[in-house]
Design a protein around this nucleic acid. Structure first.
Lengths: 194, 194
DNA sequence: ACAGCCATGTAACTTGTTACATGATTTT
DNA sequence: AAAATCATGTAACAAGTTACATGGCTGT
């Protein structure tokens, strides 16, 4: 849905053609989420099918220019203020993976956490470096790209903190098991089988 | 990919049938990401097509039980320690939306941020409440569900902090524009047109 | 008898990805 | 002349969602 809505928002601003749409999108997101050009054309087809955009013919340079329709404008006006991801947040593959790792027997959780932490740390460093470089350039046009970078940084930091918590929780569990095996059952370990 | 890998991981533990797979998945993720039963069957078909699982026939109760193959086991052993989302992180719809909102003329950013903040705050409260309830129950079986909740909480907190930053950045930009219009150009606003 | 859950599936659909074909224009 | 980039598209595919059909079994 992101791409569809993004292209629509760009066309809400002004009519554009396929290649332009990709360039504008990647300008704003700093090419963090590269947009395949094929995707642009198929999405434009679908938007046209749904009556949200329409071919406006040539622009003099032979480009196939699309314009937004009234129905499309309405969609954009609804999209922007509509909060995202309220109902069911998008599936978090990392969270799912660790949830399975800690509950399935025979999976060694520690290396999973370690590998992810290394990757997340590397990503965070990359983002931070990009941020330094971007700020150094001092180009006000990069406002959007900076926001995207900040979002990625915040997210990754949260991920790292969560990984720490996972590790600590696992250690705690191990300890609890030790206590139990030495006779000191913890309060939470009430028997539940009849 | 999450679902496919999750089902495979569950079958790596032991053979199961469709309904069971959904139940096990939702047990572990606390039904935060509900799994449509139809999806389970189509995914099993694809896994079988790819030679990662195979029908093991009946289990005595008439259930269609699937088992994992050697190829499937290898996939699972690769999946767990493989870090997630390194290359291109999954598209963040909120980040994209705000990046477009701040760069497209004619979009009022403030209400977009406000609406999202309200929604995120509400979500955070829900998660926090669920967490309190779950901890109160003191059932050790909920370890995975707690981790998932913590992940959601961390993520949402990061989102809220990021929204604050966006708002501050916007205010700053406004101020810069005022300065400029009163003749005091800021350092970052170097002219770039030839 | 009927409602509701367990259980297995199928069909049609959406968004998004990848690979390929084709030709024009620009750069080296 | 060759290579790269601009530009438009198509075909095949993957993952996931939704709605529907079907039948057995259980509890009221």
């Amino acid at each position: 849905m992101s791409i569809r809505n993004s292209l629509l928002a760009l066309l809400h601003d002004q009519p554009r053609y396929g290649y332009q749409l990709r360039a504008e999108f990647e300008d704003r997101t700093g090419a963090m989420w590269p947009l395949n050009i094929g995707q642009v054309y198929t999405t434009l087809d679908r938007l046209e099918r749904d009556g949200l955009v329409s071919k406006m013919g040539d622009d003099g340079d032979g480009h196939v220019v699309y314009g937004i329709t009234e129905a499309g404008r309405m969609e954009v006006r609804e999209w922007f203020p509509a909060a995202v991801g309220r109902r069911t947040p998008p599936r978090n593959e990392l969270a799912i993976k660790l949830a399975l790792a800690v509950t399935l027997p025979g999976v060694d959780v520690a290396p999973v956490i370690r590998a992810q932490r290394a990757a997340s740390r590397a990503a965070l460093q990359d983002y931070t470096k990009s941020r330094r470089d971007t700020v150094a350039n001092q180009r006000p046009a990069d406002t959007a790209w900076l926001l995207v970078l900040d979002s990625l940084i915040f997210q990754t930091e949260a991920e790292l903190r969560w990984l720490d918590l996972c590790e600590a929780r696992m250690a705690q569990l191990q300890q609890n098991r030790s206590f139990k095996s030495t006779g000191k059952a913890s309060g939470g370990e009430t028997a539940r089988r009849p």
